[in-house]
Write a protein that binds this DNA or RNA. Structure first.
Lengths: 125, 125, 125, 125
DNA sequence: GTGGTCTAGACCACA
DNA sequence: GTGGTCTAGACCACA
């Protein structure tokens, strides 16, 4: 389920964070679900426990999971809402990117078709 | 004209690269135009000359500028084409981002309107 | 009556201790009253018996309860006095906190009003 | 200037955070001031560089400092405001503590006198 | 068993 | 020089 690409420029701990975010957004991880323990995840991904710990610490700080000493880490009730709010606040970045793409001479119609396709995909999930 | 934001997480050298890219794409910098000398740029931006050097080296490597020893750095003939090609190759990333936005429950229509607006802006430039 | 919040950063055993302290201070638990058995409490709170045991051990160590093998755990005669003494010894911490609040520009008057209100509440209990 | 007490139950990284917070609130550290480098601080405090790093990472995340790779860590312009806002949001905790103190039979007047004294101190700084 | 903190120290990107 | 990431592994508190 979880993977880390050592070749990637994205730090390992962030790859872990991103995957868990994705699983939460897609519903693979639901509120209350327990995450693999730090040790289990580190063995599975062949990374140091500290690296997993760093990922979990960030997720906890953002309120996506809550971790209790001795019990483990669990997806929080508010995880989906928090993630949606966070992602929405990244809209301005998307607009910037679209602006850059627009400058390269790509036609508006092409972008709109991409959006149509993405929403079509999602409907079929 | 050029600026570097020290508070930004984007490395200084990359901020310089991004600005020059933008000036090339918008036509503010045309093929053959001379860039400020490393020394001049570093004084103006209050950054280390190494930092400007690093930016110029990258732009040179990508073929956006060419530097001749003793004469300076100049925008290449192919700069605009290269840039457009590069930006287009970043389309998959944009698609990924749109996919993420789609998952947050933002409506397709909203995204399409954003695109319409961006292209409207550009027409008026 | 007793509750443990798994999402809290406060360890479960400490939440139990804090609740019993509070019940003693407010008189809900009086000297001689019997506490629930470790087993009963652990079932009710959905926590590990070790966790309840740890809480009781601490309360016993501090002289707030005494446990007799086979009979159970009971609030001690001196419990209220001990608690009051302990809480008073935490005054310096409170002073530190007030000092910090003072630095943020909150007015003296505001703090005094809070204190007035708290004592008003208490009188009505 | 900086110190870490190894005997304390407060983690070393948090002690560092708390001290920097205090220096910012008291004006010993002003916006734009550079903090000691991770290495310098770790040598001075006899703690591992990672421990200092952890402290700086938290301060950066909260916007109290900004750190730029290769240049160092600096107190942000908004540091004081952010800190004040954060501390104010801790008022409810203070109220809880006052409530506990009130239950021990300490007189209202005693608390008010403490507040008077704290504000007197501060005026003389 | 669980997560949290920490040391020791390597290696990297950036200025 | 600077901070950022990571491994290897110890030790602790909590359940």
């Amino acid at each position: 389920m979880y993977q880390v690409d050592n070749q990637s420029r994205v730090p390992a701990y962030e790859q872990i964070v991103l995957q868990i975010e994705k699983y939460i957004l897609t519903g693979i991880l639901a509120a209350g679900d327990q995450l693999p323990s730090v040790r289990a995840m580190s063995l599975q991904l062949h990374v140091n426990p500290n690296t997993v710990q760093k990922a979990y610490t960030e997720l906890d700080r953002r309120g996506l999971i809550f971790t209790t000493l001795g019990k483990g880490a669990f997806v929080s009730e508010e995880a989906t809402d928090i993630l949606k709010r966070e992602k929405r606040s990244e809209m301005p970045k998307l607009v910037d990117q679209i602006r850059e793409i627009a400058m390269t001479g790509i036609e508006k119609q092409e972008l709109i078709e991409i959006i149509e396709k993405v929403y079509e995909e999602e409907k079929n999930d």
